[in-house]
Design a binder for these strands. Sequence first.
DNA 1: CAACAATACGGAACACTGTTCCGCTTGCCA
DNA 2: TGGCAAGCGGAACAGTGTTCCGTATTGTTG
Lengths: 194, 194
Amino acid sequence: MADNDSGEAQPAPRKRADARRNEATLLDAAASAFVTSGVDAPVRDIAARAGVGVGTIYRHFPTRADLIVAVYRHQVEACAQAGPTLLATSSTPHAALTQWIDLFVDFLVTKHGLAAALQSDNTAFESLHAYFIDRLVPVCAQLLDAAATAADIRPDVNAFELLRAVGNLCIGAGDPRYDARRMVGLLVAGLRLP
Amino acid sequence: MADNDSGEAQPAPRKRADARRNEATLLDAAASAFVTSGVDAPVRDIAARAGVGVGTIYRHFPTRADLIVAVYRHQVEACAQAGPTLLATSSTPHAALTQWIDLFVDFLVTKHGLAAALQSDNTAFESLHAYFIDRLVPVCAQLLDAAATAADIRPDVNAFELLRAVGNLCIGAGDPRYDARRMVGLLVAGLRLP
DNA sequence: CAACAATACGGAACACTGTTCCGCTTGCCA
DNA sequence: TGGCAAGCGGAACAGTGTTCCGTATTGTTG
């Protein structure tokens, strides 16, 4: 189905030019605010950086989660797509799993406050959580499955739990006394079959 | 030195009766508020439960960390003291370490929000962090050391890091889909020497 | 027992968040 | 160009933590 504009399945009637411009500006502003102040950067700060009113933020991104997802969508997508690739190119399923988790950890530790937000029970982050789950759990499950089938790892670990544990371990990375990558390494080591 | 009141080392001139009463009431109120709403329970809620004004809370417990520490001090103390005991009574240092970590995890997972508060970079929790570190890191280090000497575990793990990792893994316990204890088990398994 | 000073209390007031709402402006299309 | 739907700004509201000071309570002293 080559859906050009003649199809009836086009519920997005193309936004006004200024709206699109503002959305892009906002995305940039949020990204830079996130770097400086973490993903909890005050709404007013982001609005000020973008030179818009706070109402404009809420129109484009009704919840903070929407904004965060929009900012990081590309990277999450890339991480998700790396899963099957690694599985195909790595020597063992276990190696693929390890490398993929490294990718995920690298992503998380460079986003100040994101790991914490992911586990927060604050309702504002609900859909952020949902997005990560939807996008990454299946990928992790596939890797886990392959490794379990190859008898590389214990078969009783569940993708959701593992991803959550890894996310948790990434909280507080940035403290020089705490090496999140090393702790994740320990966890993954615990996964191996004796 | 049997220090009765004649000694000069008595910098606390015994508080007024109402002050002591309020402090106890406040401790009860906070404990029950923490159970209901987690350790982030609004100051006003705690004050209302205790039937006092918010000023009274701040006089007795200048930071939220002080209040949390006061509420949980007994349990943390007990955990700290269990370390040497376990080391003396367990069959192997590794068993002692495992049991001690179980104790710590049991404590954390039953205190809603405490694990998260422990890792929060919010300055209000700084001294909470410090208290846990001061009290528990040496105990953990002792256990770790014994296990490393017995060649039960890899020798390159550091007590601070391990405790922090365990604390992190306890965030979000309560979600039925996530079993913090099992994940900590994985981490500790990764510690074992092959 | 009464008066007094030190101590402690209460809660209004402030600062800083997120979030909503509505009058005004802007872009688009006829 | 005129009209109007879409979009915008920011004031206003609500929920936090935190401070401050006038008032009340307590313990002590004459």
